[in-house]
Design a protein around this nucleic acid. Sequence first.
DNA 1: CGTGCCAGGTGCCGT
DNA 2: ACGGCACTTGGCACG
Lengths: 259, 259
Amino acid sequence: MVNKLLEVFRNSSLDDYAKLINESIVKREILVLIGKCSVDYTGRGESRLTDGDRVLIIKSDGSVQIHRPEGYKPVNWQPQTSVIEARVVDNKLVLTAIRDKPREILNVVFNEIYLLIRGRLTDNGEFVMYLNESDIRDLIYVNPWLIEDGLHIIGKEKDLGVGAVDLIGVDNKGKAVLIEVKRITASREAALQLYKYVEKYAKLTGAQPRGILVAPSFTTQALDTLKRLNLEYRELDLKKLWLLKKRNMGGKCGLDQLL
Amino acid sequence: MVNKLLEVFRNSSLDDYAKLINESIVKREILVLIGKCSVDYTGRGESRLTDGDRVLIIKSDGSVQIHRPEGYKPVNWQPQTSVIEARVVDNKLVLTAIRDKPREILNVVFNEIYLLIRGRLTDNGEFVMYLNESDIRDLIYVNPWLIEDGLHIIGKEKDLGVGAVDLIGVDNKGKAVLIEVKRITASREAALQLYKYVEKYAKLTGAQPRGILVAPSFTTQALDTLKRLNLEYRELDLKKLWLLKKRNMGGKCGLDQLL
DNA sequence: CGTGCCAGGTGCCGT
DNA sequence: ACGGCACTTGGCACG
């Protein structure tokens, strides 16, 4: 087996490296380049990085990222590019990646190349993310009693013109209830966001709705703001419910058996 | 030259791969692993990724990232880890990366390994970022006339208890001026942020300050909100000034010669 | 297109 | 540690 057609090059000539890179880009292969380089970026911002050893990755969709030996994030990058080109200038390999909208230019000058890997990777794997905000929103949509007895949810992601409120419902007294959901600790901003919806809803309908902020926890500033703006909150850590569900029941029960 | 001690392995045994990986982690080398794997993550969220070809990178600081063949962002990651360990389970290479605070676990099962690269990279390069928000803030701090004639800036990043206002100054009539700076198009949120500071400042001092939002452009919603809240704005694209400066003067002049 | 908002956001800096 | 916020934020969804 030719190892998934992954090719490794070292000690090639600069011209060969340039050719290898440009070929890979055309063929939409993945490319990993390890070497000593300096990087200039100009676009929305502007940056300059002097010489050092880095790992440069070009993916099949034309995204580029340059990694230093430390740090989770790339030091320079380009999410999408319209043009990537490698060429030899002054006996150095220069790689230019240009992005349109916003117009941004990434220029990498390699003073040394230690290693070039290229090849086609096939990835048809399915990625599923759980416990994101929409997950929680949907859970409440189906189980409104988690918030309050007698609550009826009547709308999800309702656009009010100033953004969409997560959930709209009616309580057991017939009063409208706007719900904003946060999957992590809710800040003052979250309270203000909810207030924005409440204000707009009142203006649109002429009726004052209740506003409930739902989150696993709240900053003191958030609680303060909620009180000041006459808004309510419910502490609800869906993550904990999720773990409980997984641990105790093996997923074979309804959520209502948890409490 | 031994190519910066970068080592490449392919067709090794699973036990050898595990050993190579664990060695690299102890020696704090950089490690690039290309192969077919599935990934499970649990922590703040929870995700599952089925089999496919990916590039996994472990850096010397223990950060881990798993890249699919497309997309700028890693599909799974771990910014810092307290423990990374590779071992062979059921004739498969399993890599576990654990992070404390928040407690998160990343589990990668390799069904095939195409390539392993490891080695020590040295990067003492200097990284400088220009045109970020603090850059613009400092520029206005030194050149307050960019905002208004007769303006005196007297404070920078002043914490008002609800967050820090970018700049505080006094206009030529002796009235306090709060300035909020945005490096990109200012939204309604930016206007609200400024209003928050203006409100708090008035409460703290008993005097109503002016509020000016400075940005290269404004959304219509931002302009609407500014008007409603009796706030001012200045269109100021420092990026353009920067480009002009670079293009026309070669950096040999003061900013005031630009206008 | 812009506008709004979530993200396992991350990172920095402050109290 | 919590809190507030910028980021070349990136990414998606929707009018």
